[in-house]
Protein backbone atom coordinates (compact mmCIF):
# COMPACT_ATOMS: atom_id res chain seq x y z
CA UNK A 1 0.00 0.00 0.00
CA UNK A 2 1.43 3.35 -0.90
CA UNK A 3 2.11 5.79 1.88
CA UNK A 4 -0.59 8.38 2.08
CA UNK A 5 0.81 11.86 2.07
CA UNK A 6 -1.88 14.34 2.72
CA UNK A 7 -0.73 16.65 5.43
CA UNK A 8 0.90 19.97 4.55
CA UNK A 9 4.65 20.14 4.83
CA UNK A 10 4.81 21.09 8.48
CA UNK A 11 2.87 18.00 9.51
CA UNK A 12 5.08 15.69 7.60
CA UNK A 13 8.21 16.88 9.34
CA UNK A 14 6.59 16.60 12.73
CA UNK A 15 8.93 14.55 14.80
CA UNK A 16 9.93 14.42 18.37
CA UNK A 17 13.30 16.06 18.59
CA UNK A 18 13.20 16.23 22.35
CA UNK A 19 16.06 14.19 23.75
CA UNK A 20 14.81 11.27 25.76
CA UNK A 21 15.80 12.67 29.13
CA UNK A 22 13.83 15.81 28.36
CA UNK A 23 10.58 14.02 27.72
CA UNK A 24 8.10 15.47 30.12
CA UNK A 25 6.77 12.80 32.44
CA UNK A 26 3.40 12.88 34.11
CA UNK A 27 2.48 10.29 36.72
CA UNK A 28 -0.87 8.81 37.54
CA UNK A 29 -0.92 6.52 40.55
CA UNK A 30 -4.09 4.48 40.84
CA UNK A 31 -5.67 6.90 38.43
CA UNK A 32 -4.73 10.05 40.35
CA UNK A 33 -2.53 12.71 38.78
CA UNK A 34 0.52 13.30 40.94
CA UNK A 35 0.85 16.99 40.31
CA UNK A 36 -1.06 20.21 40.76
CA UNK A 37 -2.99 21.76 37.95
CA UNK A 38 -0.36 23.25 35.66
CA UNK A 39 -0.11 25.25 32.52
CA UNK A 40 3.30 24.92 30.95
CA UNK A 41 4.35 25.42 27.34
CA UNK A 42 0.78 25.76 26.25
CA UNK A 43 -0.30 22.48 27.84
CA UNK A 44 -2.87 22.49 30.59
CA UNK A 45 -2.91 19.43 32.84
CA UNK A 46 -5.33 18.76 35.62
CA UNK A 47 -7.29 16.03 37.32
CA UNK A 48 -10.54 14.85 35.85
CA UNK A 49 -13.91 14.35 37.53
CA UNK A 50 -13.77 13.09 41.14
CA UNK A 51 -10.06 13.90 41.23
CA UNK A 52 -9.33 10.95 38.98
CA UNK A 53 -7.96 10.62 35.48
CA UNK A 54 -6.07 13.15 33.44
CA UNK A 55 -7.49 16.13 31.69
CA UNK A 56 -5.11 17.62 29.17
CA UNK A 57 -5.55 20.49 26.80
CA UNK A 58 -2.95 21.45 24.23
CA UNK A 59 -3.28 24.98 22.99
CA UNK A 60 -3.21 25.87 19.31
CA UNK A 61 0.17 26.54 17.70
CA UNK A 62 1.79 24.39 20.31
CA UNK A 63 3.81 21.83 18.44
CA UNK A 64 6.37 19.12 18.83
CA UNK A 65 6.52 18.23 22.51
CA UNK A 66 6.47 14.70 23.85
CA UNK A 67 4.66 13.84 27.04
CA UNK A 68 4.96 10.48 28.69
CA UNK A 69 2.01 9.54 30.85
CA UNK A 70 2.98 6.87 33.29
CA UNK A 71 0.04 5.23 34.89
CA UNK A 72 0.67 2.66 37.60
CA UNK A 73 -1.46 0.57 39.89
CA UNK A 74 -0.17 0.18 43.42
CA UNK A 75 -0.94 -1.81 46.58
CA UNK A 76 -2.63 1.27 48.08
CA UNK A 77 -5.75 0.52 46.07
CA UNK A 78 -6.06 -3.19 45.31
CA UNK A 79 -9.73 -3.11 44.21
CA UNK A 80 -11.18 -2.45 40.78
CA UNK A 81 -10.59 1.05 39.42
CA UNK A 82 -12.27 3.09 36.73
CA UNK A 83 -11.30 6.51 35.57
CA UNK A 84 -11.79 8.86 32.67
CA UNK A 85 -9.21 10.78 30.68
CA UNK A 86 -9.89 13.61 28.30
CA UNK A 87 -7.19 14.81 25.99
CA UNK A 88 -7.94 17.70 23.74
CA UNK A 89 -5.85 19.36 21.05
CA UNK A 90 -6.95 22.78 19.95
CA UNK A 91 -6.96 23.58 16.24
CA UNK A 92 -3.45 23.47 14.83
CA UNK A 93 -1.88 21.88 17.91
CA UNK A 94 0.48 18.93 17.68
CA UNK A 95 1.87 16.65 20.35
CA UNK A 96 3.29 13.22 20.91
CA UNK A 97 2.03 11.19 23.85
CA UNK A 98 3.46 7.97 25.19
CA UNK A 99 1.20 6.18 27.62
CA UNK A 100 2.85 3.52 29.77
CA UNK A 101 0.52 1.41 31.87
CA UNK A 102 2.06 -0.70 34.59
CA UNK A 103 1.29 -2.46 37.81
CA UNK A 104 3.83 -2.24 40.60
CA UNK A 105 3.40 -5.88 41.59
CA UNK A 106 1.77 -9.11 40.45
CA UNK A 107 -1.57 -8.43 42.12
CA UNK A 108 -4.73 -9.04 40.09
CA UNK A 109 -5.55 -5.40 39.43
CA UNK A 110 -8.62 -4.47 37.45
CA UNK A 111 -8.41 -1.17 35.70
CA UNK A 112 -10.74 0.48 33.18
CA UNK A 113 -9.76 3.66 31.47
CA UNK A 114 -12.18 5.66 29.39
CA UNK A 115 -10.15 7.96 27.25
CA UNK A 116 -11.65 10.64 25.11
CA UNK A 117 -9.51 12.31 22.50
CA UNK A 118 -10.62 15.44 20.71
CA UNK A 119 -8.61 16.70 17.79
CA UNK A 120 -9.37 20.25 16.60
CA UNK A 121 -8.99 21.33 13.01
CA UNK A 122 -5.55 20.45 11.62
CA UNK A 123 -4.41 19.15 14.99
CA UNK A 124 -1.92 16.33 14.97
CA UNK A 125 -1.59 13.66 17.63
CA UNK A 126 0.92 10.86 17.74
CA UNK A 127 0.01 8.52 20.57
CA UNK A 128 1.51 5.29 21.73
CA UNK A 129 0.08 2.95 24.33
CA UNK A 130 2.40 0.55 26.11
CA UNK A 131 0.28 -1.99 27.90
CA UNK A 132 2.57 -3.68 30.29
CA UNK A 133 0.87 -4.74 33.45
CA UNK A 134 1.24 -8.24 34.83
CA UNK A 135 0.26 -11.74 33.84
CA UNK A 136 -2.85 -11.66 36.06
CA UNK A 137 -4.18 -8.13 35.70
CA UNK A 138 -7.37 -7.17 33.91
CA UNK A 139 -6.71 -4.26 31.63
CA UNK A 140 -9.34 -2.29 29.80
CA UNK A 141 -8.94 0.65 27.47
CA UNK A 142 -11.99 2.30 26.00
CA UNK A 143 -10.87 4.99 23.64
CA UNK A 144 -12.91 7.28 21.50
CA UNK A 145 -11.29 9.81 19.22
CA UNK A 146 -13.10 12.59 17.41
CA UNK A 147 -11.21 14.00 14.47
CA UNK A 148 -12.01 17.45 13.15
CA UNK A 149 -11.30 18.68 9.64
CA UNK A 150 -7.77 18.02 8.44
CA UNK A 151 -6.63 16.55 11.74
CA UNK A 152 -4.35 13.56 12.00
CA UNK A 153 -4.27 10.77 14.54
CA UNK A 154 -1.46 8.25 14.66
CA UNK A 155 -2.14 5.67 17.29
CA UNK A 156 -0.02 2.65 18.19
CA UNK A 157 -1.13 0.16 20.77
CA UNK A 158 1.35 -2.40 22.03
CA UNK A 159 -0.08 -5.10 24.27
CA UNK A 160 2.67 -6.92 26.11
CA UNK A 161 1.54 -8.11 29.51
CA UNK A 162 -1.85 -8.41 31.10
CA UNK A 163 -3.95 -11.44 32.02
CA UNK A 164 -6.96 -10.10 30.19
CA UNK A 165 -6.51 -7.12 27.93
CA UNK A 166 -9.53 -5.47 26.36
CA UNK A 167 -8.97 -2.68 23.90
CA UNK A 168 -11.85 -0.82 22.41
CA UNK A 169 -10.74 1.81 19.95
CA UNK A 170 -13.26 3.98 18.19
CA UNK A 171 -12.42 6.76 15.76
CA UNK A 172 -15.04 9.13 14.46
CA UNK A 173 -14.49 11.38 11.47
CA UNK A 174 -17.35 13.83 11.12
CA UNK A 175 -15.36 16.32 9.06
CA UNK A 176 -13.47 16.03 5.81
CA UNK A 177 -9.77 15.43 5.21
CA UNK A 178 -8.98 13.76 8.50
CA UNK A 179 -6.32 11.07 8.65
CA UNK A 180 -6.51 8.25 11.15
CA UNK A 181 -3.92 5.54 11.48
CA UNK A 182 -4.27 2.96 14.20
CA UNK A 183 -1.75 0.16 14.43
CA UNK A 184 -1.22 -2.42 17.06
CA UNK A 185 0.78 -5.34 18.19
CA UNK A 186 -0.22 -7.97 20.69
CA UNK A 187 2.15 -10.55 22.08
CA UNK A 188 0.49 -13.16 24.21
CA UNK A 189 1.71 -16.25 25.98
CA UNK A 190 0.69 -18.41 28.93
CA UNK A 191 -3.04 -18.02 29.48
CA UNK A 192 -3.25 -14.42 28.32
CA UNK A 193 -6.41 -13.27 26.63
CA UNK A 194 -6.20 -10.20 24.44
CA UNK A 195 -9.10 -8.63 22.67
CA UNK A 196 -9.36 -5.75 20.25
CA UNK A 197 -12.55 -4.07 19.10
CA UNK A 198 -11.88 -1.43 16.53
CA UNK A 199 -14.42 0.77 14.88
CA UNK A 200 -13.85 3.59 12.47
CA UNK A 201 -16.67 5.85 11.34
CA UNK A 202 -16.26 7.72 8.11
CA UNK A 203 -19.06 10.27 8.26
CA UNK A 204 -17.49 12.89 6.01
CA UNK A 205 -15.84 12.83 2.60
CA UNK A 206 -12.14 12.65 1.81
CA UNK A 207 -10.93 11.07 5.00
CA UNK A 208 -8.27 8.40 5.20
CA UNK A 209 -8.01 5.59 7.73
CA UNK A 210 -5.95 2.53 8.07
CA UNK A 211 -5.39 -0.10 10.71
CA UNK A 212 -2.71 -2.71 10.84
CA UNK A 213 -2.88 -5.08 13.79
CA UNK A 214 -0.61 -8.05 14.28
CA UNK A 215 -0.65 -10.70 16.96
CA UNK A 216 1.76 -13.41 18.02
CA UNK A 217 0.20 -16.03 20.26
CA UNK A 218 2.13 -18.62 22.17
CA UNK A 219 1.19 -21.42 24.61
CA UNK A 220 -2.53 -21.42 25.49
CA UNK A 221 -3.13 -17.76 24.85
CA UNK A 222 -6.27 -16.38 23.24
CA UNK A 223 -6.77 -13.46 20.96
CA UNK A 224 -9.67 -11.83 19.26
CA UNK A 225 -9.92 -9.07 16.72
CA UNK A 226 -13.13 -7.38 15.67
CA UNK A 227 -12.83 -4.58 13.22
CA UNK A 228 -15.58 -2.47 11.76
CA UNK A 229 -15.25 0.28 9.24
CA UNK A 230 -18.40 2.21 8.45
CA UNK A 231 -18.55 4.55 5.52
CA UNK A 232 -21.68 6.71 5.72
CA UNK A 233 -23.69 7.83 2.70
CA UNK A 234 -22.02 10.92 1.32
CA UNK A 235 -18.57 10.06 2.62
CA UNK A 236 -17.18 10.02 -0.90
CA UNK A 237 -13.47 9.67 -1.68
CA UNK A 238 -13.00 7.75 1.54
CA UNK A 239 -9.94 5.58 1.78
CA UNK A 240 -10.15 2.94 4.46
CA UNK A 241 -7.94 -0.06 4.93
CA UNK A 242 -7.90 -2.64 7.65
CA UNK A 243 -5.71 -5.65 8.20
CA UNK A 244 -5.19 -8.12 10.98
CA UNK A 245 -2.50 -10.78 10.72
CA UNK A 246 -1.68 -13.38 13.32
CA UNK A 247 1.03 -15.86 14.00
CA UNK A 248 0.24 -18.87 16.16
CA UNK A 249 3.23 -20.52 17.78
CA UNK A 250 1.43 -23.53 19.24
CA UNK A 251 -1.55 -25.73 18.48
CA UNK A 252 -3.22 -24.59 21.67
CA UNK A 253 -3.13 -20.86 20.99
CA UNK A 254 -6.33 -19.52 19.46
CA UNK A 255 -7.36 -16.41 17.62
CA UNK A 256 -10.61 -15.28 16.09
CA UNK A 257 -10.54 -12.44 13.66
CA UNK A 258 -13.36 -10.57 12.03
CA UNK A 259 -12.62 -7.51 9.96
CA UNK A 260 -15.80 -5.93 8.60
CA UNK A 261 -16.68 -3.22 6.14
CA UNK A 262 -19.99 -1.44 5.85
CA UNK A 263 -20.03 0.93 2.92
CA UNK A 264 -22.86 3.26 1.92
CA UNK A 265 -20.94 5.50 -0.48
CA UNK A 266 -19.88 4.54 -3.99
CA UNK A 267 -16.70 6.48 -4.67
CA UNK A 268 -14.41 4.91 -2.09
CA UNK A 269 -11.28 2.81 -1.81
CA UNK A 270 -11.58 0.26 0.93
CA UNK A 271 -10.04 -3.07 1.73
CA UNK A 272 -9.80 -5.42 4.61
CA UNK A 273 -7.96 -8.60 5.22
CA UNK A 274 -7.07 -11.08 7.88
CA UNK A 275 -4.78 -14.04 8.14
CA UNK A 276 -3.77 -16.66 10.64
CA UNK A 277 -0.49 -18.41 10.05
CA UNK A 278 2.23 -20.44 11.60
CA UNK A 279 6.01 -20.25 11.47
CA UNK A 280 7.30 -20.75 7.97
CA UNK A 281 9.20 -24.06 8.03
CA UNK A 282 11.08 -23.32 4.84
CA UNK A 283 12.09 -19.90 6.17
CA UNK A 284 13.36 -21.47 9.39
CA UNK A 285 15.39 -24.02 7.45
CA UNK A 286 16.87 -21.28 5.29
CA UNK A 287 17.99 -19.32 8.36
CA UNK A 288 19.34 -22.41 10.09
CA UNK A 289 21.26 -23.42 6.99
CA UNK A 290 23.28 -20.23 7.55
CA UNK A 291 24.28 -21.32 11.05
CA UNK A 292 21.51 -19.55 12.95
CA UNK A 293 20.13 -21.63 15.82
CA UNK A 294 16.51 -22.75 15.75
CA UNK A 295 15.61 -20.46 18.67
CA UNK A 296 17.24 -17.47 17.01
CA UNK A 297 15.67 -18.29 13.66
CA UNK A 298 12.23 -18.32 15.29
CA UNK A 299 13.04 -15.02 16.92
CA UNK A 300 14.10 -13.45 13.63
CA UNK A 301 10.96 -14.71 11.97
CA UNK A 302 8.76 -13.22 14.67
CA UNK A 303 10.59 -9.90 14.55
CA UNK A 304 10.24 -9.94 10.78
CA UNK A 305 6.52 -10.57 11.19
CA UNK A 306 5.96 -7.48 13.33
CA UNK A 307 8.44 -5.28 11.48
CA UNK A 308 5.89 -3.27 9.52
CA UNK A 309 3.92 -2.33 12.61
CA UNK A 310 7.05 -1.07 14.35
CA UNK A 311 8.23 0.68 11.20
CA UNK A 312 5.16 2.91 11.47
CA UNK A 313 6.48 4.48 14.67
CA UNK A 314 8.02 7.64 13.35
CA UNK A 315 10.27 8.76 16.16
CA UNK A 316 13.43 6.79 15.61
CA UNK A 317 14.73 6.73 19.18
CA UNK A 318 11.38 5.45 20.43
CA UNK A 319 11.07 2.93 17.63
CA UNK A 320 14.51 1.52 18.42
CA UNK A 321 13.67 1.16 22.08
CA UNK A 322 10.40 -0.53 21.25
CA UNK A 323 12.12 -2.97 18.91
CA UNK A 324 14.36 -3.98 21.81
CA UNK A 325 11.36 -4.32 24.09
CA UNK A 326 9.46 -6.46 21.62
CA UNK A 327 12.49 -8.66 21.23
CA UNK A 328 12.99 -9.14 24.93
CA UNK A 329 9.25 -9.66 25.37
CA UNK A 330 9.38 -12.44 22.78
CA UNK A 331 12.38 -13.94 24.52
CA UNK A 332 10.29 -13.98 27.70
CA UNK A 333 12.79 -11.76 29.53
CA UNK A 334 10.34 -9.03 30.06
CA UNK A 335 8.24 -9.59 33.12
CA UNK A 336 9.68 -6.80 35.22
CA UNK A 337 9.79 -3.05 34.84
CA UNK A 338 13.55 -3.18 35.26
CA UNK A 339 13.83 -4.79 31.83
CA UNK A 340 11.67 -2.14 30.23
CA UNK A 341 13.46 0.39 28.11
CA UNK A 342 10.97 3.20 28.52
CA UNK A 343 12.85 4.60 31.55
CA UNK A 344 9.75 5.53 33.44
CA UNK A 345 9.90 3.89 36.84
Amino acid sequence: MKEYIYMPEVRRVFRCTVPDENIRQVFLVDGVLQEEETEKNGIILKRGPEEKGLYMRVQGDHFGETIQIISVRSEDLPGPLEFTNKWELEPGAGIQIIVCDHTLNEHLYQTSRFSKIILGEDACLDILFMQNENIRSHYRLDLIANLDKGSQLDCHVLSFYGGIINNKLHAVMNHPEAVCRMDGLFLADGEQDIKYDISVDHNAPECYSRQLFKGILDNHSRGSFNGAIKVAPGAQKTEAYQANHNLLLTNDAKITTKPQLEIYADDVKCSHGASIGRMDEMGLFYLRSRGISLAEAKMLQQMAFVEDVLAGIRTESIRERLEKMVESRLRGEFKKCSNCTMHCC
Binding site: D280, G283, F285, Y286, R288, S289, S293, A297, V306, E307
Partner: peptide, 28 residues
Protein backbone atom coordinates in the same frame (compact mmCIF):
# COMPACT_ATOMS: atom_id res chain seq x y z
CA UNK B 1 21.22 -29.99 13.19
CA UNK B 2 21.25 -27.80 10.07
CA UNK B 3 22.86 -24.97 12.03
CA UNK B 4 25.61 -27.23 13.37
CA UNK B 5 26.42 -28.35 9.84
CA UNK B 6 26.58 -24.73 8.70
CA UNK B 7 28.87 -23.76 11.54
CA UNK B 8 31.18 -26.63 10.63
CA UNK B 9 31.43 -25.11 7.17
CA UNK B 10 28.61 -26.59 5.12
CA UNK B 11 26.80 -24.24 2.77
CA UNK B 12 23.84 -24.78 0.48
CA UNK B 13 23.09 -22.31 -2.28
CA UNK B 14 19.34 -22.84 -2.66
CA UNK B 15 17.75 -23.58 -6.02
CA UNK B 16 14.78 -21.56 -4.76
CA UNK B 17 16.02 -19.04 -2.20
CA UNK B 18 13.40 -18.29 0.44
CA UNK B 19 11.78 -14.88 0.83
CA UNK B 20 11.58 -13.49 4.33
CA UNK B 21 9.58 -10.26 4.36
CA UNK B 22 10.47 -7.96 7.23
CA UNK B 23 13.97 -9.34 7.77
CA UNK B 24 16.69 -7.23 6.19
CA UNK B 25 19.77 -8.76 4.62
CA UNK B 26 21.94 -6.86 7.06
CA UNK B 27 20.12 -8.23 10.12
CA UNK B 28 20.07 -11.72 8.63
Amino acid sequence: TPEERARLGFFLGFQYPVEIPGLTIVNF
